[in-house]
Design a binder for these strands. Sequence first.
DNA 1: GTCTATAGATAGATAGAC
DNA 2: GTCTATCTATCTATAGAC
Lengths: 182, 182
Amino acid sequence: MQDHRQSILSASLAILREKGYAGFTQPRVAAAAGLRQSHLTYYFPTRIDLLMVVARVAIDRQLVAVDGILTASSVRKAATTIASVAVRHENTRVIMALAQAADQEPALREFFRELADGIIVRAGKLLINLNIEPTDERCYQLHSMSVGMAVIDLATARKNGERRAARTLEAALTSMRKGATG
Amino acid sequence: MQDHRQSILSASLAILREKGYAGFTQPRVAAAAGLRQSHLTYYFPTRIDLLMVVARVAIDRQLVAVDGILTASSVRKAATTIASVAVRHENTRVIMALAQAADQEPALREFFRELADGIIVRAGKLLINLNIEPTDERCYQLHSMSVGMAVIDLATARKNGERRAARTLEAALTSMRKGATG
DNA sequence: GTCTATAGATAGATAGAC
DNA sequence: GTCTATCTATCTATAGAC
């Protein structure tokens, strides 16, 4: 039943979301998918096999999520939209878990290079929409700020995280715009 | 022998550095410290007990490391110094490992709030040194960029990471300075 | 081809020896 | 107070049943 593969993937993402990489175990995933652990290994012989496929799916989804930001046409709108994505802890947990895995599993790094490149391209498009010249420095600035805010917000779990992120992004984008024209 | 506590802490940090949070197990730490696992639990009854003390040490050290950046008096020097710290993967691994743990263990979050606040204060001092008005947005921008760069560099493991980070930080700081005077 | 019982390794914690 | 043997739970992987 090919359907099982799908439910294993869904369950894996749910586990990563809720428990992080440390909680990503075959028994847990199998239970969440309604299978026995020994059955799961039929579809994904090793833990890494599963992790690779899960990472593939997660990275693709993350790029799709970033696509949703591109339409913003004002600096303020862009800032608030990026901020709202950055403080979505479910996303952050999955990506962070995979990032740590990538540090140990070189095979995963390729996915993260792909994700990073994809985000840079999209950041460039956003900047063009905002009438800001898309230098690599500016694109990388947006990317690193978003990632940093997501991580900081996850670790500190503060109430005003989203507003603060939005304000800071808006200030940075405004500053870029001035730099571009002056 | 109080000395054992110290070697357990050193061993713990070494494990987090090399293996991340997933590799942080009592048997591994004990072996690295030259003790039996069952002896380790005498000093630190549960895994979380040990983690809390390790986090305390790691956060303090991180703040000390950040203190070393404050002396920079030019934008370029500040950018290159921050970049060199950001791409030090040993640091990043430890802090990231603890950040993920903090997401699961609320008791750890207080440490991260302390770290985040400490970094904001230090970022403010640095900005003053650079003749840039230290708004909260600018401080948080520096903080989030540094964190993001560290994480991205860890996950992608690219060669030009440090140079790119330095260039981007320099551009951001320069942009802030223009914003401050114009 | 699909699924499971079971082995083999490793984790964390405790009761108790010295 | 210091240290260890040992128990229980949990993990990954494989050999083999259907």
